[in-house]
Amino acid sequence: MNNEIPIWRIKYIPKTLDEVCGREKIKERLKNIIKQGNFPHLLFVGSEGIGKATLASLFSKEFLGIFYDANFKLIYANVPLTEEERQLARSEAYVSKSKIGSIAGRRITTPAFIKVKVKPFVQLKVLGDTPFKILIVKNFETLGSNQQGFRRLMEIYGSNCRMILITTKISGVIDPIVSRCQLFLISQVDLNSFKELMNKIAENESLEIEDGSIEILYKVSNGKISRAIDLLQLSSISGKKITKNMLYEVAQKFQNDLVGSLLLMTLRGDFPKARELSRNIISNYKYNPHELFNLLLNELNKLPLSKFARIQLINLIADADFRALDGIDNDIQISALLSKICLFSEHLS
């Protein structure tokens, strides 16, 4: 076929709720909701990349039926607004006419994100014959203090629009929001359903899979199905037979261990090179310093270090992260951390 999608993770993306791999109990609950035709605001919690958003959007698709296109929206909370959107939000700010009280003569602004992305959708009436619209907000915890703006929105426009909030860290969601939602804890896919899916793909692509390699695939991909499919595709390029060794090899290539090698390089005490590498990482992956520091922290936990050394390094990272909160120049803050780790490495050996 000529117009076949060359990327397997897109090719095998589930089209209906039934096709979603595993998670039978949750699927059943969602199907019950569809039967009843009503649900409160939902909060989906689960670790990264396990298919929360896929579940939520397929659920909304089946719930809304043919009115799906007009009444559904998916927004990403962590994608920053464009310059035009920010201008739009700013232009709608107004100066309070009130003469007394704390808001007298103040500029009234609502958070730009809510003004531009959320409000226009939730305020619009339902189109067609469905009880309400559905709004999905992904990475909800990254909204930070903007979450406060959702409290009243969820109540005022709740009858018009139900929200499905998706988050990886429930501790990042403020309590008033949690109390307004029904909680869905979404687990990783279990091994049996995972095997089923992989075997199906293998059959479709006429691959031969060595015994025991699916277990390895499951382990390496960390429950992320899309990552597992990526790995399968990469290892299929060299041959139709998939072996354990091949999977390990591919996984190594695939893993984004740039941050790991950055940490090792700094622990070797080579500051100029480490800085060069950190700049490369930042410009390729567009991490903000906070994200980079978090990744460093993760890598740190993988290294065989004494508990004293570990806590010292954590101390350094925390201090740098704290300074970066107020600082302006990210490069300075990252370089400062790297230089301190370089110095620390001298005491280590």
Partner: peptide, 10 residues
């Protein structure tokens, strides 16, 4: 050197 990143820019 102007380092891209930080404020997510494409």
């Amino acid at each position: 050197r102007y380092v891209v990143g930080g404020a997510f820019s494409l």
